[in-house]
């Protein structure tokens, strides 16, 4: 850029303006060229995709695998992290025909998490795969582990109905759930109706300075075995940096988007330790105003 004024002088004073304009035009031309090249390359890589399909489990870590008796499928269970923390855990199930080894992409899968605490047993919130058609050969589903394995032992029973052969069976997987350094699972007894609510922090997974998506999920415990998603509450989000005593501007309160999930925006003005304060209301009645999640990055 510094070379430019020299060029400008060589061209003569009167032409300076022209050269300036030319310079801008030049930039435009280069930009358009860059776009054309980018599109061409983009198309090229797309056409390559068709030929060489990437592994759908790339970037995922296999937690366990086993044969589902009766359904004639082998099941593989994946997650992004490789370990399971208490809170909202997303899984990806891959099914293979136990004889041919071919992928099974049509299956109805139902989960049933269970914790055995010796004296009693309870289930937990969960989300079955949204469709019986696999998404990129995988069935995404979720379980909310409301406490770590230190209090008992967790299992998830996966019931598979293979729609290719209409055979059905179930596999029970034992899982070890650990408590993360910063908890992502909280619960409270609502002051307005005495209901027991469980809230999970789903996003931000990789917080950064700037605007982040925030996603939480809210569940209500109806019985030991019934933990439906709840959409009756409204959420107010107040981020806070307790060490410095400040907040952050332009946050967007999470609103319900379905299945008990609430999505909003959270701003972090710096790295470090943040508290995400969450207040829950039903209409004008306060359900709880003591909940928060810790985030440190």
């Amino acid at each position: 850029m510094a070379v430019f004024p020299v060029r400008c002088i060589q061209a003569g004073m009167g032409m300076c303006q022209d050269v300036l304009i030319k310079n801008i035009q030049m930039k435009k031309i280069i930009l358009s060229l860059a776009i054309v090249i980018a599109i061409t390359f983009g198309l090229y890589s797309c056409s390559k995709d068709v030929i060489q399909e990437p592994d759908p489990t790339e970037g995922l870590i296999k937690l366990t695998e086993g044969y589902v008796p009766g359904a004639a499928v082998k099941m593989e269970l994946y997650s992004k992290e490789g370990t399971i923390n208490s809170g909202f855990s997303k899984f990806y199930i891959a099914l293979y025909d136990s004889v041919t080894g071919n992928r099974v992409d049509d299956a109805a899968i139902q989960l049933m998490p269970m914790m055995d605490m010796g004296m009693m047993q309870h289930s937990a919130p969960y989300e079955n795969p949204a469709s019986s058609k696999a998404d990129n050969h995988l069935f995404p589903c979720s379980v909310v582990f409301i406490m770590p394995s230190t209090a008992g032992s967790w299992t998830v029973k996966v019931n598979v109905k293979n729609l290719l052969n209409n055979k059905e069976g179930a596999l029970t997987i034992p899982l070890t759930v650990t408590e993360p350094v910063k908890s992502k699972q909280k619960s409270f007894t609502a002051t307005h109706n005495g209901g027991k609510y469980f809230i999970s922090l789903i996003d931000p997974v990789a917080p950064k300075v700037g605007i982040n998506d925030i996603e939480i999920a809210v569940y209500k415990k109806v019985s030991m075995m019934s933990w439906p998603a709840d959409s009756s509450l409204s959420v107010t989000l107040t981020p806070e940096m307790p060490t410095m005593g400040h907040g952050s501007p332009n946050n967007v309160n999470p609103v319900h988007i379905g299945k008990g999930h609430y999505k909003g925006k959270v701003n972090f003005t710096m790295t470090g330790y943040w508290k995400l304060n969450l207040d829950f209301m039903e209409g004008t009645a306060v359900a709880d105003s003591t909940q928060f999640f810790d985030i440190e990055f």
């Binding site: 300075v209 940096m241 060490t243 410095m244 003005t269 710096m270 790295t271 470090g272 330790y273 440190e296 990055f297």
Partner: peptide
């Protein structure tokens, strides 16, 4: 802040 990750911006 001792015991915390650095606060950077």
């Amino acid at each position: 802040q001792p015991g915390q990750l650095p606060m950077y911006m």
